[in-house]
Simulated scan of single mutants.
Amino acid sequence: MTEARRAVNPLWAFYEQIAMVVGLSALAIICLFWLPFAMLLHPLLPRRIGQPIGRRMIMGGFRFYLRFLEIFCACRFDLGELDRLRDQGPMILAANHPSLLDAVMILSRFPDAVCVMKAALLDNILFGAAARLARYIRNNAPLEMILSAREELQRGAKLVIFPEGTRTSDFPLDPCMNSVGLIASRAKAPVQTLLIEFSTPYLGKAWPLFRRPCLPLTSRIRLGQRFAPPTDIEAFTQELEAYYRAEFAQNPVCTAAVAA
């Protein structure tokens, strides 16, 4: 739906505003529901018990949330290709990062996924307790991050990481960092690229949190090329970025401009 059509349809604009409030509120409620349990279980349970419980609860909570958005907020998520990876063993899932919903979509499909997260999110009141119970990895200490990621991959986990380091500000892609190559090289793990596409850049870096979305919102995650563990980190990072840019030249990340 174009901006012109939205402008002459105040009822639809009102629905978009309500859907935004309902959608954001639902996520907050889900997080608040699990918060006291995660805070209690983290110090009480040993890692071998608490970690899988934490990761499965995040998967289930995010899956429920995406379904809620589909039913009540005119969102459509095409995530079927991710399911092909579930039984394929440990690997690095490297995705572009156009929206705040990216990690939600990926983590909703895997019971054994571990995410590399900003330290600020791990300390956040809404998300921190659940992430700590699931033993997600902080990104603020590079050596510790790499060693922790290697340990998780050796245990059989799927590691979710965004090579750009943060949400995309200059579409289709910001420069990629060396972290993916460093982890893959240390862990001898393959890198499976994920290509995330949205109908609009809703909840992207340039989209204010409380700006109403352009509905209906559609998103798809495609499986991209799988790279072998690299030996030359710099060359791998350049190859990875070039691959993303070539893919997005053919299939844009967002079908609407950031300023729309």
Score class of each variant (00 low, 15 high):
Gln88Tyr: 04
Leu11Ala: 10
Ser148Thr: 05
Val253Thr: 11
Ile29Arg: 10
Asp102Ile: 04
Tyr243Lys: 10
Pro201Asp: 01
Gly60Glu: 09
Val104Thr: 11
Thr255Lys: 13
Asp123Arg: 15
Thr166Met: 09
Leu41Phe: 10
Val116Gln: 05
Asp232Leu: 02
Thr255Cys: 10
Phe33Tyr: 14
Pro172Gly: 04
Trp207Val: 08
Glu152Ala: 13
Arg150His: 03
Val258Thr: 12
Ala103Trp: 09
Leu40Met: 08
Cys176Arg: 01
Thr168Cys: 08
Pro208Trp: 03
Phe162Tyr: 14
Pro230His: 01
His42Cys: 11
Leu93Thr: 06
Arg135Thr: 07
Ala28Gly: 09
Ile196Asn: 06
Val191Phe: 02
Phe37Ile: 08
Leu35Arg: 15
Arg109Asn: 03
Arg84Met: 11
Ile53Leu: 15
Asn178Ser: 14
Gln250Ile: 10
Ala242His: 10
Pro43Lys: 02
Ala228Asp: 09
Ser25Lys: 00
Ala187Asn: 08
Leu122His: 05
Leu85His: 11
Tyr15Ile: 01
Leu133Met: 10
Arg63Leu: 01
Asn139Glu: 03
Ala131Gly: 06
Ser25Glu: 04
Ala7Tyr: 06
Arg186Tyr: 04
Phe210Lys: 04
Phe14Pro: 00
Thr166Val: 08
Arg186Trp: 02
Val116His: 04
Thr255Tyr: 11
Ser99Tyr: 14
Leu133Ser: 01
Gly89Glu: 08
Ile49Glu: 06
Asn96Glu: 04
Gly128Ser: 09
Asp78Glu: 15
Thr168Asp: 07
Ile106Met: 00
Cys73Lys: 08
Lys188Cys: 08
Val116Asp: 00
Thr237Ala: 04
Asp174Trp: 00
Ile125His: 14
Gly54Tyr: 05
Val180Leu: 05
Asp87His: 14
Ala256Asn: 12
Met91Gln: 15
Phe33His: 04
Asn9Tyr: 06
Ala95Lys: 12
Ile58Pro: 09
Thr166Gln: 12
Phe14Cys: 07
Arg138Met: 02
Arg48Pro: 03
Met57Asn: 11
Pro46His: 00
Glu239Val: 02
Pro208Gly: 02
Ala235Trp: 05
Glu234Gln: 11
Phe33Val: 10
Ala130Asp: 10
Ala246Gly: 10
Ala235Ser: 10
Arg135Glu: 15
Leu93Cys: 06
Asn96Lys: 08
Asn9Cys: 03
Leu27Arg: 05
Gly80Ala: 12
Met91His: 02
Ile92Tyr: 11
Phe162Leu: 00
Lys205Ser: 12
Ala256Asp: 14
Ala4Phe: 12
